[in-house]
Measured scan of single mutants.
Amino acid sequence: TEEYTYTDKEKADRAAKEWANRGYTVTVTQDGPTYRVRVG
């Protein structure tokens, strides 16, 4: 499991979509002003 942190919702959504397109399980959680994209 890897985790990426973004401050921009659009970038987080785009990253999540790209990982999902590659067949990974993706979870996006909002943590205050940041968005965490957990992959795998």
Score class of each variant (00 low, 15 high):
14 R>I: 11
5 T>F: 13
34 T>W: 14
7 T>P: 09
3 E>Q: 06
39 V>N: 01
40 G>V: 15
8 D>Y: 05
32 G>Q: 02
16 A>Q: 04
31 D>K: 06
21 N>H: 09
40 G>S: 15
8 D>Q: 07
15 A>H: 06
4 Y>E: 05
15 A>D: 07
17 K>A: 13
1 T>D: 10
35 Y>K: 00
18 E>K: 08
1 T>E: 12
12 A>G: 02
13 D>M: 15
24 Y>T: 01
18 E>V: 08
12 A>K: 01
37 V>L: 10
1 T>P: 11
5 T>A: 08
11 K>D: 14
13 D>R: 08
21 N>L: 13
26 V>W: 02
20 A>K: 12
33 P>A: 12
13 D>K: 08
13 D>A: 10
37 V>P: 00
4 Y>T: 04
6 Y>A: 01
16 A>D: 01
29 T>K: 06
5 T>M: 10
34 T>A: 08
21 N>W: 08
30 Q>Y: 07
10 E>M: 09
1 T>F: 15
31 D>T: 07
30 Q>F: 07
29 T>E: 11
2 E>Q: 15
26 V>F: 02
34 T>S: 08
3 E>D: 08
40 G>D: 13
1 T>L: 12
13 D>S: 09
29 T>A: 06
15 A>V: 10
37 V>F: 04
12 A>W: 02
31 D>E: 12
11 K>T: 14
19 W>P: 00
28 V>K: 03
28 V>T: 05
36 R>K: 13
8 D>P: 01
5 T>G: 04
28 V>F: 05
26 V>P: 02
3 E>S: 07
32 G>R: 01
35 Y>I: 07
16 A>W: 04
15 A>I: 08
30 Q>H: 08
3 E>F: 09
3 E>K: 04
24 Y>F: 12
27 T>K: 07
8 D>L: 06
34 T>N: 12
39 V>M: 03
21 N>G: 11
15 A>W: 06
21 N>V: 09
28 V>Y: 04
11 K>Y: 08
6 Y>W: 04
23 G>T: 01
13 D>N: 11
17 K>G: 07
36 R>N: 05
15 A>N: 04
28 V>E: 02
7 T>M: 11
14 R>A: 14
11 K>H: 12
14 R>P: 01
17 K>Y: 11
16 A>H: 03
16 A>K: 04
2 E>D: 11
39 V>T: 03
15 A>M: 08
15 A>E: 06
20 A>W: 08
37 V>N: 00
30 Q>R: 11
12 A>N: 00
38 R>T: 14
12 A>R: 02
38 R>L: 14
19 W>Y: 06
36 R>E: 03
35 Y>L: 03
12 A>H: 00
9 K>G: 06
11 K>M: 14
7 T>D: 13
3 E>R: 05
12 A>P: 00
32 G>Y: 04
1 T>V: 14
21 N>S: 14
30 Q>E: 08
1 T>I: 14
27 T>G: 04
22 R>W: 07
4 Y>K: 04
36 R>I: 15
32 G>N: 02
34 T>D: 05
13 D>T: 10
9 K>W: 13
2 E>Y: 15
31 D>R: 06
30 Q>K: 13
28 V>N: 02
26 V>I: 05
2 E>S: 14
28 V>R: 03
